[in-house]
Lab assay of single mutants.
Amino acid sequence: SIKEIEKEEIIKVLKEVNFNKKLASEILGIPLRTLYKRLKEYGI
């Protein structure tokens, strides 16, 4: 599903940037606030 793909992509990017959420949100092209929402939604 799209949610699974998105979750995997978020985890992959977070690992690449050593869990720097600000940098991860910039790489993913989403606002930091949205990233936090996704992390909560996906239980990351």
Rank of each mutant, 00 (worst) to 15 (best):
K3N: 13
F19G: 14
I11T: 05
E16D: 10
K22S: 07
R33G: 12
V13Y: 02
A24K: 00
K40M: 12
K3I: 12
I2T: 13
L35T: 00
S25D: 00
F19W: 15
K21M: 15
G29R: 06
E4C: 13
S25F: 01
E26I: 14
L28T: 02
E26N: 08
E8M: 14
P31L: 06
E41Q: 09
E9K: 15
L28F: 03
L35S: 00
E41S: 05
F19D: 05
I5S: 11
G29C: 04
P31G: 08
R38A: 14
V17M: 06
L28G: 00
K3S: 12
E8T: 10
I44E: 05
Y36K: 15
R38M: 15
I5F: 12
L23M: 11
L32R: 03
I30E: 01
G29K: 08
E4Q: 12
R38I: 15
I27Q: 06
E6Y: 09
G43P: 03
E8L: 13
I2K: 13
E4V: 11
E41V: 05
T34G: 04
E8V: 08
I27S: 04
Y42D: 04
E41W: 06
K40E: 13
K7E: 06
S25C: 07
Y36P: 02
G29W: 02
E6D: 11
E9R: 15
I11R: 06
K15A: 08
V17Q: 05
E16Q: 13
Y36W: 08
V13W: 03
K22T: 07
R33Y: 12
K40R: 13
L35F: 07
I27M: 09
L32I: 09
R33H: 14
A24P: 00
I30K: 01
T34H: 08
L35W: 02
L35N: 00
K22H: 09
K22R: 12
I27R: 11
G29Y: 02
K37V: 07
E6H: 10
V17Y: 05
E26A: 12
I2E: 14
E6N: 11
E16L: 13
R33L: 14
G43W: 06
L32C: 06
E8D: 11
L39M: 15
L14Y: 04
K22I: 12
K21N: 08
F19A: 03
I5T: 13
S1E: 13
E26T: 10
V13Q: 02
L14I: 04
Y42Q: 03
N20R: 04
K12W: 06
K3T: 12
L28Y: 01
P31R: 06
K7I: 15
F19Y: 14
F19C: 09
I44V: 07
K22N: 06
N18E: 06
K22P: 06
V13R: 03
I44L: 12
S25G: 04
S1Q: 12
E8Q: 14
K3M: 12
I27G: 02
L28E: 00
K21H: 15
I27K: 10
I10M: 10
N20Y: 05
I5R: 14
E9C: 09
Y42K: 03
I30A: 01
E9D: 10
G29D: 05
I2W: 10
K40F: 11
K12I: 05
I10V: 06
S1D: 14
N20C: 08
I11N: 03
L28N: 00
L23S: 06
Y36N: 14
Y36L: 15
A24Q: 00
R33Q: 12
A24G: 02
I10S: 01
G43L: 06
K40W: 13
L35H: 00
L39P: 00
K22Y: 09
L32S: 02
I11M: 14
K21S: 09
T34C: 09
L14Q: 00
L35V: 02
